[in-house]
Amino acid sequence: MPATPLPGTRVPDHRGRTDLDRTGLDLAGNPRVRVLAVELLAAAWHVLRRTTFEYLGADGRWTRQQRETYDRGNGATVLLYDPERATVLLTRQFRFPVYVNGHPDGMLLETAAGLLDDDDPETAIRREAAEETGVEIGELEHVFDVWMSPGSVTERLHFSAAPYTPAQRVAAGGGVADEGEEIDVVELPFDRALAMTTTGEIADAKTILLLQWAALHGPFRTR
């Protein structure tokens, strides 16, 4: 009897996805890379693949290589700032991956963020900001797009910034309980938040990048 196809390949996985083992086979943008095979290793909520490819080195030789990539989709994040009171609005939540890798309690201070799912970056970050902080964003500024861990994670993160006022906090925030989220909303003076990036009290990469952008090029660059 033929082997049963792995869920997520020819047959749908628990999220209805198929052909997860074909991602990358049609890449043609870099003539020094020839993708040979894609193996689906895991398809739980996100997707782990092992890709075999040939790479043309500077010495003119093709070498066969393998890379494992973790595909969790793309995401968006926003720095919420009050220019009049010189404050920023952050979140604090438990992150098991950092807890298991040396963080004292796993509770990270972060800018509001989330996966795009099927939305564009602006729609997604407006949704996430409302869910996590209770803020209805008005004006939104695109800052930059960054690959946060390009050696293994495919995610591209879309960064933005938006002013807020106390009146725009129309709900308590705290995240979506049905998704297991338990998020504290933390308002800090900008200068204190920036200083916390040097003491380790803020250790999240996206948050550090946005705070440094705000100090160098953004709303607090003259401070």
Rank of each mutant, 00 (worst) to 15 (best):
T91Y: 05
A113G: 04
L115R: 14
D21N: 04
G151F: 06
E54L: 00
I208D: 03
T23D: 08
R10L: 15
P163R: 06
A58C: 14
W213A: 01
E39P: 10
D145L: 06
D118W: 15
P12S: 01
G174A: 02
L89Y: 00
T198Y: 15
R32F: 05
E131S: 03
F220H: 03
G16T: 05
L41D: 06
W147I: 11
L188E: 02
H46Q: 13
P219I: 10
V153C: 08
H217L: 11
H142A: 12
G151C: 04
E84T: 08
V176I: 15
T4K: 12
W45Q: 13
A44V: 12
T23F: 08
V88Q: 06
E139K: 09
T111P: 08
L157Q: 07
G8A: 13
G106A: 03
L216C: 05
F94C: 03
R15D: 12
M107F: 14
T154E: 04
G218H: 12
D105H: 01
D105Q: 01
L41Y: 07
R223E: 07
L40I: 02
D120L: 07
L36M: 13
R223Y: 14
L140W: 04
E128H: 14
V186E: 14
A28D: 10
P189G: 05
I202D: 01
E139A: 15
A86S: 15
D178K: 07
T18M: 02
L89I: 06
R221M: 08
Q168A: 14
H142I: 04
V185Q: 02
E54W: 01
D204K: 00
R50A: 11
G106Y: 04
T63V: 15
S160C: 14
V135R: 01
A195N: 03
Y81R: 13
L80I: 06
D19S: 12
V11D: 09
M107E: 15
L41T: 03
Y70N: 14
G29L: 03
L36N: 02
A205I: 13
G134Y: 00
D71A: 04
G174R: 00
P31A: 12
T154S: 07
D119T: 05
G57P: 05
R127P: 00
D204N: 13
A37Q: 13
A86K: 14
D120Q: 10
V78L: 11
L209T: 11
L108A: 15
R15I: 01
D26K: 00
